[in-house]
Computed example of a mutant assay.
Amino acid sequence: MDSAKHKKGLTDVAELAGVSLSTVDRVLNERGSVSDVKRRKVLNAARTLGLRRLLPSPVHGLLRFDLLMVESHTDHYQRLTQAFQRQARLLKARLVLQHQTWHDRNPQDLLDFINRPRTARQGLIVVAHDTPAIRAALQLQIARGVPVVLLTSSLSGLVGATYIGIDNHVAGRSAGRLLGQWLGACPNGGQVLLITNSLLYHAHQQRIGGFMQVLHERAPHLQISAPVECHDDDALTARAVHHALDNGATLAAIYNTGAGSEGIRQALLARNIRPAWITHEASLQHARLLREGLLSLVLDQDPEGQADAAIQHLLYANGDLDIPPQMHPQLRIVIDETLPHRAS
């Protein structure tokens, strides 16, 4: 009787999964070669039917996750890369993280990486611009059953993909709220110089939009410059500061949504001024600028938490975790008082 019940249970799994009884036997008893897609179908059906037995991992052998990141030497991407490397070392018995970089001047490289993986992949983590070709390529991967994690919010609305990162609109609003409180009592106003990397990046658009929205609401007496695209380049950020001052601006504040802080520092020291200054990413450079009193506040998007959550999400999507990941990247505010104490 028990044998009959057992066979019926396996038959039910086969019918629900849409595979043969022999395929169910091979998956559940780890015998023979079965594609990852069929393995997932069988295991999902077994869980749905409440099959009373210890189920194997949905993927036989090592998981292979592709990490496709834009080529960048900014602090954020360096920290993100190091965090992924740390995760790969910790989980080397279970997964292989295949890291490839692409340059934003060559989007075709990214398309090639998405469309032609070097090996079968069980997960894809990607930094990408929003273009129809990239959307179509990622949608095809999702349709093939590949879990996709987005590290940038540019591809909002991509059905089946998961964005892991902070809310950049909220980050921009936070910068505007804090700056508005600092400068709200200044009746003479002044100019707020708005510096960004590139408006091609959705994250920078969101930060700028949130920032301007709050300042218009809370400090309408301030004059906000049009965003100056400096592409994280120190020479260009220095030029932006000098240009604003040469045009007669009373510089009350600077908000930089990207990198290029050394250029801003050089310009402020050369002109002997210290406006309020808010930027992003908790780095050693920014810690030094906070201690010097040049930089007022830093908003950090927690790249370490972003990497950890991305890997955990893919492990869960592949059935290696029973519950969804509980960790999420956190927007952090850093000022000089919150920096680690330095021995005198």
Rank of each mutant, 00 (worst) to 15 (best):
P187R: 07
N188Q: 15
G190L: 08
V192M: 09
T196C: 14
T196H: 05
S198I: 05
L199F: 12
L199H: 12
L200A: 15
L200E: 14
H202N: 11
Q205I: 13
Q206L: 15
R207L: 09
M212L: 15
M212D: 08
Q213W: 11
V214H: 06
H216E: 14
E217G: 11
P220W: 06
P220G: 06
P220E: 04
H221E: 12
L222R: 02
S225Q: 10
A226S: 14
V228Y: 11
C230D: 01
C230L: 08
H231T: 09
A235C: 08
R239H: 14
A240G: 13
V241R: 01
V241W: 04
H242G: 08
L245H: 05
D246T: 13
T250E: 09
L251A: 02
A252T: 08
A252L: 10
I254Y: 02
N256M: 05
N256D: 13
T257W: 00
T257S: 15
G258F: 01
S261I: 01
G263Q: 06
R265D: 01
A270C: 10
A270K: 13
R274Q: 11
A276H: 13
A276M: 13
T279R: 00
T279A: 01
H280Y: 07
E281H: 11
S283E: 00
A287Y: 06
R288V: 07
R288M: 05
L290W: 00
E292G: 04
E292R: 07
E292A: 13
L294H: 07
L294A: 04
L294F: 08
S296T: 15
D300Y: 06
D302K: 03
G305C: 10
Q306I: 08
